[in-house]
Design a protein around this nucleic acid. Sequence first.
DNA 1: ACACAAACTTAAGCAGACTTAAATATAAAG
DNA 2: CTTTATATTTAAGTCTGCTTAAGTTTGTGT
Lengths: 220, 220
Amino acid sequence: MKNISKEDYLSVIYKNSDDNKEIKANLIAEKLLISNAAVTDMLRKLSKEALIDYKPYKSIKLTESGENYAKNMVRRHRIWELFLHQVVGLPWDKVHDEAEKLEHSGSDELINRMEEMLNFPEFDPHGDPIPSKDGAIPKQRTTVSLSTLVENDSGVVIRVNDFNKSFLIYLAQIGIELNSIIEVKEKRSFDNSMLISVSQKEWNISETLAENVFVEKLKA
Amino acid sequence: MKNISKEDYLSVIYKNSDDNKEIKANLIAEKLLISNAAVTDMLRKLSKEALIDYKPYKSIKLTESGENYAKNMVRRHRIWELFLHQVVGLPWDKVHDEAEKLEHSGSDELINRMEEMLNFPEFDPHGDPIPSKDGAIPKQRTTVSLSTLVENDSGVVIRVNDFNKSFLIYLAQIGIELNSIIEVKEKRSFDNSMLISVSQKEWNISETLAENVFVEKLKA
DNA sequence: ACACAAACTTAAGCAGACTTAAATATAAAG
DNA sequence: CTTTATATTTAAGTCTGCTTAAGTTTGTGT
């Protein structure tokens, strides 16, 4: 039962690797809020178990089996998120932390059962893809940042950045959810703020907010 | 996050204390499958935190705060069980193990939300009472063992002993669930086996099985 | 009342996952 | 190509929850 730690490391490596699928020890330490020394320690262990390729002082890469392991953790996390949101009705900004705690427990059977209940979803409440049982990853839909839309454009919300909790809370407040339809009413060139309408209501949003909401553009 | 162990000890103490609310270290070790030395160790820690009354070589008793803690764990466990059974549709014999893993995670908020979804249930799938948020414990309904019924008696299933997994699987197979109605068709005095009917079907069951199923007797 | 088995505690030690501090590699800049 | 800053590793130590082995206490049976 003490693989929790290992699981966290693998998830972090998976989620934060660059385009070459490599990552630096430093980043892992930052994300997990632990010392670099602890990271080195664990890297040696993961390497011994052939879950990562690791040579001292070089950057780190998951092996195939390490990647499978990590993908499964991501899968578990995202299915929990979606389940908590959809079935239990937990608000958007709470599901991440809750899922973080639950993802290490629960049998694969339970995960599969929840996936089935959710009708084999492809994306979680943040719009991130959910790896399937066999490790396949749904292709990201082609999305653009809300900030790229201009007056009279509209789009469906596909994904939002999970970068900040109060951001998520605010989104919920103004009624922006997965699949919400957003229409740009006005756009101000001097600060790129915009007036949008979401489910009959209008709101003024900053460029920062718009940059972190991703939509699929609708035909005019 | 390392209160898992503490939580397990407190639950075991709570669930296995005798009528005087006392328990011996030995029993704890047996239930948790660990050495007596480990138990002594932890008892000293729990005692230091005033969760138990403990003097070396004497039997152990929860303090009030220890009991509250333990009750909350039992509550969490049983709500998970019921949720997994009722909402997720996990079979009877699987919920216990699954809940054991999940009970340590998940916020109180999540537990409360699930409780609400379940409409503030008083008993879990095994028929055991679920402590409420404020620690109140629903009174056991007056039940008798199925083995005490005689020919032509019938009863509603209220609780079953969780003593053995294959027992639970067999119950599910022959269709005995919470709230099933069981009618005793025949009873054989030489071995106390009985022929019962459950939802239109008839089954022959041993005395051992009958002893571990508890029903509320129905008027003839 | 005494002996002895069973129950319990103490002691020493180990593994996992950390920490801080010091040492060493690597990379970037002059 | 040397200096310096940054990233990484090593070393030594801590804390938790266990283990085995050895030593105590308790209570039971005759």
